[in-house]
Amino acid sequence: MPEHRPDERRPAGHRSDGHPPDSETVSAWLDGELDEAARRRFEAHLAACPACAAQVAALRGLAAGFASMRAETLGYDLAGVLDGRLAAAAPRRPRTPRRWLVWLPATLGAAASLALGIGLGSALPGAAAAAPPALVGAMRVFDPMPPGSVCLGPDPCYTKGMPR
């Protein structure tokens, strides 16, 4: 995992001015996660510090943007879709073979993207990451193909029928 250290790129004036609050304090204050003493200390500082006030305003703008992401919805009734599949899947028996029936489509999706990845990997330009979701989706058309040719897992593809 890439190690970013954005803290070190904090607005230059913030530290050189000798401001006591660090970015963790500002962030925790916004979240209401400072204890009473720290909260008062920061708020007293904030009232007199335009740099911190600007930082707070900017972070609040960011938070408002995230808030508007909460309008996003899945767009369909997943519960209804799942219910049919759950009828075939026994709860509290996670090690039974039936579990594979439930997971098989996802496995096939991964297998399909692997197959495509091998074929297309070298040809794809920089924007390649846009491709997999669409391609995986397109490959769903081939779900009923005989298992085996794109099987990643050990036995299940060979011993079970296809779900549906």
Partner: peptide, 30 residues
């Protein structure tokens, strides 16, 4: 869904993952 969408950056994969999540939850709820 909206957590997964922003985490993986693909609507289609987020939909699959949402379904996968709830199946897993159902199976291991105990």
């Amino acid at each position: 869904f909206r957590f997964l969408l922003r985490l993986v950056g693909s609507r289609e994969e987020a939909m699959d993952l949402t379904q996968e999540t709830f199946l897993k939850v159902f199976q291991s709820l105990s």
